[in-house]
Write a protein that binds this DNA or RNA. Sequence first.
DNA 1: TGCCCCCTGCAG
DNA 2: CTGCAGGGGGCA
Length: 290
Amino acid sequence: MPELPEVESLVRLLRPHLVNQIIAAYEMPKPLHGGYQIADLMGQRITGLERCAKLIFLRTPGAAAVLHLMLNGQLIYISADGRTRLAGGHPGPDMIAELPCSTTRLIIRFASGSRLYLNDSRNFAHMELIPADSIPDLRKRKRYGPDPLSPDFTADYLQIALSRRSRTTIKEALLDQTVAPGIGNICADESLFLAGIHPARSSADLDDVEIGRLVKGIADTLEAGIRRGGSANEARGSVKETRRAQQQVFKVYARKGLSCLRCGTPIERIVIGGRGTHYCPKCQRRTAPN
DNA sequence: TGCCCCCTGCAG
DNA sequence: CTGCAGGGGGCA
């Protein structure tokens, strides 16, 4: 579930606490795809924590655990004295629960006495262990485009990437990690709203002005999300509470039927590429400008 | 490119 | 009961 802002926030939050910790033991109370591989990291010192698209790299001198939280994954760090508790990922009741809880799939214990919990109610999250020097190969295999937070994610780049996706909608193109790695369903909807572009528009039909606005919309959406420490990350209660918080924070996502903050028109929800898609029918027109 | 699947929980 | 959930891979 977490998108770029959540994963980035989580990595920044945990990095200073995890780096230099020695991995001492682990438990898997429930299955985690690839989780057993963590056995190979026993005794290893963590040298880095990085984000790549929506992936998290937990690095040791020789290897990297590559973790994807998918839709429902969470990471929670608890210090040895139990007084520091840092959480990120999917907002939900299990994020604030006593740990381990019913969704806990992996516990990593460090020599210091602190520990890291991975919760995932749906068993979609997965982990793989790769040699440290094969990270470039992984990036190549995934064919990720330039990170949207990097200076390489320019209008010129996006123009070319979108022109390659001529037969798809702009919404689907944004969800394509080879085009915009890290962008997810919320960021896509929010960015398109800021840019005033209808999500069902053909990706190759956008003109230069629209692509410029889209690049700006993506940057603004990501920046706002990271500044917040992860979109709507403050909502960790019931589905209903989370939804309410999302409606406070987002412009269109989760706001079906509510008034557009710019023009007052009710926000609509359609399905594109199998994903719920939210937009303002007045501010985001279906047809090209000319 | 579109569909289906992976899995669980919650709300209408 | 059905639909829905901030993801992604495999399939024809």
